[in-house]
Every structure is written in structure tokens, then in C-alpha cells.
Measured scan of single mutants.
Amino acid sequence: VAMCDYCKLQKIIKETVRFSGVDKPFCSEVCKFLSA
């Protein structure tokens, strides 16, 4: 469980994407796409 980078809620992380050398955790595909 970690904080989703988009919705800022403590959730089970399903996706982690690396932006500019920094790992960004996301709880769902939706949050990942909305943050892009």
C-alpha cells in the first residue's frame, strides 16, 4: 500500500511509471493515464 501519485489516496499500487528518473506510483490505469 502506498500513496497514488494522482488521486493522493493510500491504495494498493498497480502501476509504477518512471518520469525523469523518479518512480511515480499509481493505483490504477485510469490514474496513470489522467496524470500523463
Results as ranks from 00 to 15, higher is better:
residue 21 G to Q: 07
residue 17 V to H: 06
residue 20 S to N: 15
residue 12 I to M: 15
residue 8 K to T: 01
residue 24 K to S: 02
residue 31 C to Q: 00
residue 35 S to D: 08
residue 11 K to E: 05
residue 7 C to T: 03
residue 21 G to P: 07
residue 23 D to P: 05
residue 17 V to C: 04
residue 15 E to F: 09
residue 26 F to T: 03
residue 17 V to N: 01
residue 13 I to Q: 07
residue 8 K to P: 02
residue 29 E to M: 11
residue 19 F to S: 14
residue 17 V to W: 05
residue 8 K to I: 04
residue 27 C to G: 01
residue 18 R to H: 10
residue 26 F to L: 06
residue 27 C to Q: 05
residue 6 Y to C: 14
residue 19 F to L: 13
residue 36 A to W: 06
residue 19 F to D: 15
residue 8 K to M: 02
residue 16 T to V: 10
residue 27 C to V: 00
residue 6 Y to K: 04
residue 21 G to T: 07
residue 15 E to W: 08
residue 16 T to K: 11
residue 32 K to C: 12
residue 11 K to G: 08
residue 34 L to Y: 07
residue 36 A to S: 08
residue 19 F to C: 15
residue 7 C to R: 06
residue 17 V to S: 05
residue 22 V to Q: 10
residue 4 C to W: 11
residue 35 S to R: 05
residue 13 I to D: 05
residue 27 C to E: 06
residue 23 D to Q: 01
residue 29 E to L: 00
residue 25 P to D: 02
residue 36 A to E: 09
residue 12 I to R: 11
residue 9 L to D: 13
residue 3 M to K: 06
residue 3 M to V: 08
residue 29 E to T: 11
residue 33 F to D: 15
residue 35 S to V: 00
residue 33 F to I: 10
residue 31 C to E: 00
residue 8 K to Y: 04
residue 7 C to G: 03
residue 16 T to A: 03
residue 34 L to A: 14
residue 34 L to I: 10
residue 23 D to W: 05
residue 3 M to F: 09
residue 13 I to P: 13
residue 18 R to A: 07
residue 10 Q to L: 08
residue 23 D to R: 00
residue 20 S to T: 08
residue 23 D to S: 07
residue 26 F to G: 07
residue 32 K to R: 06
residue 19 F to M: 15
residue 24 K to L: 00
residue 15 E to T: 10
residue 18 R to N: 13
residue 35 S to Y: 09
residue 23 D to G: 04
residue 35 S to E: 02
residue 3 M to C: 05
residue 16 T to G: 08
residue 4 C to P: 06
residue 9 L to R: 14
residue 4 C to V: 06
residue 10 Q to S: 08
residue 5 D to I: 06
residue 8 K to R: 07
residue 7 C to E: 02
residue 27 C to M: 04
residue 25 P to R: 10
residue 36 A to C: 00
residue 19 F to P: 06
residue 13 I to R: 09
residue 28 S to Q: 03
residue 6 Y to W: 06
residue 12 I to V: 11
residue 3 M to R: 09
residue 1 V to H: 01
residue 3 M to W: 00
residue 28 S to W: 00
residue 3 M to E: 09
residue 18 R to L: 06
residue 25 P to A: 03
residue 22 V to K: 06
residue 10 Q to F: 15
residue 8 K to G: 07
residue 29 E to A: 07
residue 32 K to F: 03
residue 5 D to Q: 08
residue 3 M to T: 13
residue 1 V to A: 04
residue 14 K to P: 12
residue 13 I to L: 01
residue 21 G to W: 04
residue 27 C to H: 02
residue 15 E to A: 08
residue 4 C to I: 13
residue 9 L to C: 14
residue 18 R to D: 13
residue 9 L to T: 14
residue 15 E to H: 13
residue 23 D to T: 07
residue 11 K to T: 10
residue 33 F to Y: 01
residue 23 D to Y: 01
residue 32 K to T: 10
residue 7 C to L: 00
residue 29 E to W: 02
residue 16 T to Q: 07
residue 13 I to E: 12
residue 26 F to H: 12
residue 12 I to P: 14
residue 18 R to S: 13
residue 17 V to F: 03
residue 21 G to V: 01
residue 25 P to T: 05
residue 22 V to P: 06
residue 8 K to A: 01
residue 6 Y to P: 01
residue 6 Y to E: 00
residue 29 E to K: 11
residue 35 S to G: 11
residue 23 D to H: 10
residue 5 D to N: 05
residue 27 C to W: 01
residue 34 L to F: 15
residue 2 A to L: 00
residue 7 C to A: 02
residue 4 C to S: 01
residue 34 L to G: 09
residue 33 F to W: 13
residue 30 V to H: 10
residue 17 V to K: 09
residue 30 V to F: 04
residue 20 S to K: 09
residue 14 K to V: 09
residue 12 I to A: 15
residue 34 L to C: 12
residue 28 S to D: 04
residue 31 C to P: 00
residue 19 F to H: 08
residue 35 S to N: 04
residue 24 K to W: 00
residue 15 E to S: 05
residue 9 L to A: 12
residue 21 G to S: 03
residue 1 V to G: 07
residue 1 V to W: 04
residue 3 M to L: 02
residue 27 C to P: 05
residue 30 V to T: 12
residue 34 L to K: 12
residue 9 L to H: 14
residue 14 K to S: 05
residue 6 Y to H: 14
residue 2 A to H: 03
residue 20 S to D: 15
residue 12 I to E: 15
residue 17 V to E: 09
residue 23 D to L: 09
residue 14 K to W: 08
residue 14 K to H: 08
residue 20 S to G: 13
residue 29 E to Q: 07
residue 22 V to W: 01
residue 13 I to K: 08
residue 7 C to K: 04
residue 32 K to V: 02
residue 21 G to Y: 09
residue 26 F to V: 06
